[in-house]
Amino acid sequence: MTSNTRITLISVTLLVLALAAPLVAGQPFYINIGSQVLIAAIFAMSLNILVGYGGMTSIGHAAYLGTSAYVVALLTLQHGFGFYAASAVALGVVVVMAAIFGAIALRGTGITFLMITLALGQTMWGVAFRWSDVTGGDNGLPDIKRPDLFGLNLVEPGLFYAVMIALFVIALVGMWIFTQSGLGLSLQGTRDQPRRMGMLGHHVWLVRWIAFIIAGFWAGVAGIAFIGYHGYIHPLSLGLANSAEVLLMVIAGGAGTLLGPVVGAAIVVVLKMVVSAYVSRWVLLLGCTFVAIVILLPEGVVPGLERLLKTLLPETRNDGEASS
């Protein structure tokens, strides 16, 4: 058993235990927290495609989650769509939006890219906030009903959590397949050696653009789960604070790793939603946690723990790259 296999085993075991934890706790409150962690995890994983695998730091990612949620809300509330039909349209809208925004933002790299994504994200916030005839402005859009699935009413927290687990596993496996695919590998290549990749005949811009669209698509999926859970959408959900928060999840958990964003999402959501009930200065605690992560595990929690495990699990041969 190599240390990599062991680490994969440990990761999978921990993940299964973590997914089961809310059910063990029993109360709907913890199950709902579990659902929220998973929604945040899908959202963070989508950003991880850009930040981790593509080396493109976006700080306007909430625009895709928010737009998708707004489209579902508007279509179900005002145009008589069913939740699932509206979701399909929302994904189409988000993909088109990501294609356009990607074409604009990818004219730059590094800080320029970051600033353009910020500007585009704030534009969407502005539209949601100011176009109040359609979006409800600062009052948001309330009362979006949770749909039924196979005749089961998803208002029941346990059932909704089960659906979120399924969606999360699909996203996780999809993300894993993506990172192993030719496209995923060339994306990582353009992150590390863009010039060399160009020399080798890869269309660097195109690879990044496709990655941008895929990231937008999964953020849209997270948006549908978000509106399904909350039943309410407000301009704050596609604003800068939300974009920054998801970026923190990715960086704290470990950018460019499969499980990093998941761990990051769990840390942020649990601190925000659970610990805040016991600690009134929870914002300070959140800040200290990030500082501690940056000092102790600068590469993020997941790669950091992996490094620690490797030193603690000595072995005869170390072959192959990091697997998780």
């Binding site: 709907p28 409150f29 709902n32 927290i33 909350h230 805040s276 929870w282």
Partner: peptide
């Protein structure tokens, strides 16, 4: 007393915490 941080998504969770827990 529950702190919602003025964010609608938190408000819902805090309401759930008060009611369910």
């Amino acid at each position: 007393i529950a702190d919602t941080a003025g964010q609608p998504a938190n408000t819902r969770t805090k309401a759930q915490e008060l009611i369910e827990r």
